[in-house]
Design a protein around this nucleic acid. Structure first.
Length: 352
DNA sequence: AAAGCGTGGAA
DNA sequence: TTTCCAAGCTT
């Protein structure tokens, strides 16, 4: 963009945002902690999904101190259904560091804030510009889409190195007097007007500055390569019930997929193998497998893989005195307090 | 640099 | 149904 137009672009964008922005819960505060929480929740997650989680989270953890020392199990339960569960563990680690080494004051510079767990280039810039009014870039998918069109940038946004082009562009364009409205304006524009398909160019406040609009078809940008095909895995999920009506659950590993979440017993279904026999052998159980009752069969799609699940309710006739430390029989009431991933919630919903 | 990491909504 | 996501970060 010709440099002489940047002030007009800034003004058009900022004024549009101040007039047309949505009324969202996290837009009623400048508390860096609350902005931080909202930004982490919004990572790869839709606004409509986040709103009820954000409100519940702020009711429970209104300050950084209240979050810093919350029990991880309770925290995961608050995050249940939001996905990307490592976000909340990193968030707590970062908040705890702020409480313990920064006197509960979120750092106001990129160098320090970027060292906090779970705070990457985008989140750092968002907190700095929205809560502190600092002229810092906050480049997300919206910003890359909007600016690729406005500035006619055809670099592949799937490549990590491409992001610097947009960060540099934002630093050239940003309104130093309205950093919050400018950065949020770019994102709001991407969410409401400059959408991936069918952009509403006739309503766009920066249409006059948009190269792609002038060229005719903004939807040709951005350029984005890379599509990953998901891998399929078959599982039998065994809802194992003991004589007291309790259910056997196991806690997943501390890292990786659905870390630290609880699940019913899962056995990968292998050709010609009996999952009930596998479970009995692996955990030293005696199951009434002749009377197993099918519960549900469904698929659950992750970003990079797909679970094909058959689930069964089966009674446990005998269990060892000492189960592995990550396994336990829980009552119905206890299960309601345990963080479970969505596919397990779906099964639980059928039998509780 | 590329892959791993959730979920539900929309085209 | 299938595809592509939506205010990314970590390893």
């Amino acid at each position: 963009m010709n440099y002489q137009y940047t002030s007009e672009f800034r003004q058009a964008l900022v004024e549009w945002f101040k007039k047309e922005h949505r009324d969202l819960p996290w837009r009623h505060t400048k508390d860096p902690y609350k902005i931080w929480v909202s930004e982490v929740m919004l990572q790869q997650t839709r606004v409509d999904t986040v709103i009820p989680y954000y409100n519940r989270f702020m009711d429970k953890y209104p300050t950084s101190e209240s979050l810093a020392y919350a029990a991880e199990e309770e925290l995961l339960k608050m995050w249940e259904g939001l996905g990307y569960y490592s976000r909340v563990r990193n968030l707590q680690a970062g908040v705890r560091e702020v409480v313990e080494t920064y006197g509960s004051k979120v750092p106001d510079n990129r160098h320090d804030i970027s060292k906090l767990k779970g705070v990457g280039p985008y989140t750092a810039g968002a907190i700095l510009s929205i809560a502190y009014g600092k002229p810092e870039h906050a480049v997300d998918g919206n910003v890359m889409r909007v600016l690729s069109r406005v500035l006619n940038i055809d670099a592949d946004i799937a490549l990590p190195k491409t992001k610097k082009i947009f960060e540099d562009a934002v630093m050239e364009l940003i309104d130093p007097e309205n950093t919050s409205a400018f950065n949020q304006g770019l994102m709001e524009l991407g969410a409401l007007i400059c959408t991936p398909t069918s952009p509403k160019c006739l309503l766009c406040p920066v249409r006059d500055f948009c190269t792609a609009f002038q060229e005719g078809d903004p939807t040709t940008l951005p350029v984005k390569s890379k599509k990953v095909k998901t891998k399929n895995i078959d599982f039998d999920v065994l809802v194992i019930r003991d004589s007291e009506g309790r259910f056997l659950m196991e806690k997943r590993a501390e890292t990786g997929l659905l870390a630290n979440m609880w699940q019913f017993v899962m056995i990968e279904r292998v050709k010609d193998a009996n999952s009930f026999a596998q479970a009995q052998q692996r955990y030293n159980l005696v199951l009434d497998d002749n009377l197993a009752v099918p519960i549900d069969s469904f698929k659950h799609v992750f970003s990079h893989l797909k679970w094909l699940i058959d689930s069964y309710l089966v009674d446990c006739l005998q269990a060892p005195e000492q189960l592995p430390i990550n396994m336990k029989f829980f009552t119905k009431d206890q299960i309601e307090q345990i963080p479970m991933p969505v596919p397990m919630l779906k099964i639980w919903g059928k039998i509780k």
